[in-house]
């Protein structure tokens, strides 16, 4: 913990699919031990942003730095090696593999201390320990989400990119999910989170970014955005 905290910094990101740009110009940054929320209307480019940071979509312009090291347009594998982990919104577990095997896959690029990581995950989500030998596809929706996050943690990342971790979960379950995200933060991991549930996620965030049409619209601390009128009108609506 006495190591210097690293910052993940993205500047002027431009990219998308084929000829069409979805990200027009985006800057964000996050330091280890922080929770940063990205909110915005559908089609604002939130998921695309996570994917392009992680190297799944090629960036046409812009740079990504991890500390001093540039990691723009690296392969997903290299991103995992550099300490990033990405948990997509859907299809984020291997359904025919057992829970334990899913976690093994999360640690595919690691050689040592697997046991330790696995134990800390089982203490975070005890239910996964109980079901360690069950096929992941047989877990409930909430348990699958826990497994997906755990799989992301198994590579021992410095930063975790979460795409809508509470999508489709019951209110009780997303409270639990946010609780566990706070615990992960305590491990010194920076968590970049895309959420529909803007209010809840801003509450636990150090900072938030509001994206509209592939550009930064607003930036601020979680609390300041929560009380911002424009944000309230745009996304928090009736909540």
């Amino acid at each position: 913990m006495n190591k210097k905290k690293i910052t993940l910094k993205a500047e002027g990101l431009v990219g998308g699919y084929g000829g069409m740009n979805i990200l027009n110009s985006i800057d964000i940054e996050i330091t280890q031990g922080e929770i940063v929320s990205i909110i915005g209307p559908n089609g604002a480019g939130k998921t695309t942003l996570l994917k392009s940071i992680f190297g799944l979509i090629e960036l046409k312009k812009g740079n990504i730095f991890l500390g001093e090291v540039e990691v723009t347009n690296q392969s997903p594998q290299n991103m995992v090696m550099s300490g990033l982990s990405y948990v997509p919104q859907e299809r984020n577990i291997f359904p025919t593999l057992t829970v334990k095997e899913n976690l093994d896959m999360g640690a595919y690029l690691r050689e040592n201390n697997l046991k330790e990581s696995m134990e800390s995950i089982f203490s975070l989500y005890p239910v996964l320990n109980e079901k360690r030998n069950q096929a992941a596809g047989e877990l409930s929706g909430g348990q699958q989400q826990m497994l997906a996050i755990s799989r992301g943690l198994m590579s021992d990342p410095q930063f975790l990119l979460l795409d809508e971790p509470t999508a489709g979960l019951s209110p009780k379950l997303f409270d639990e999910t946010f609780d566990s995200i706070l615990k992960i933060k305590e491990l010194g991991i920076g968590i970049l989170i895309v959420e529909q549930n803007a209010k809840k996620s801003l509450k636990i965030s150090n900072r938030g970014y509001v994206l509209v049409a592939g550009e930064n619209r607003l930036t601020g601390t979680g609390e300041s955005l929560l009380i911002n009128k424009e944000v309230a009108n745009l996304f928090l609506g009736g909540q």
Binding site: F54, L56, P76, Q77, V80, M81, Y86, P88, R91, N92, I93, F94, P95, T96, L97, E101, N102, M105, G106, Y108, L109, R151, S155
Partner: peptide, 16 residues
């Protein structure tokens, strides 16, 4: 087996 389940997730996980 993981890649057979979901090749994109396998890529994301860092599997070669």
């Amino acid at each position: 087996r993981a890649m057979s389940d979901d090749s994109e997730l396998a890529l994301i996980t860092g599997i070669h």
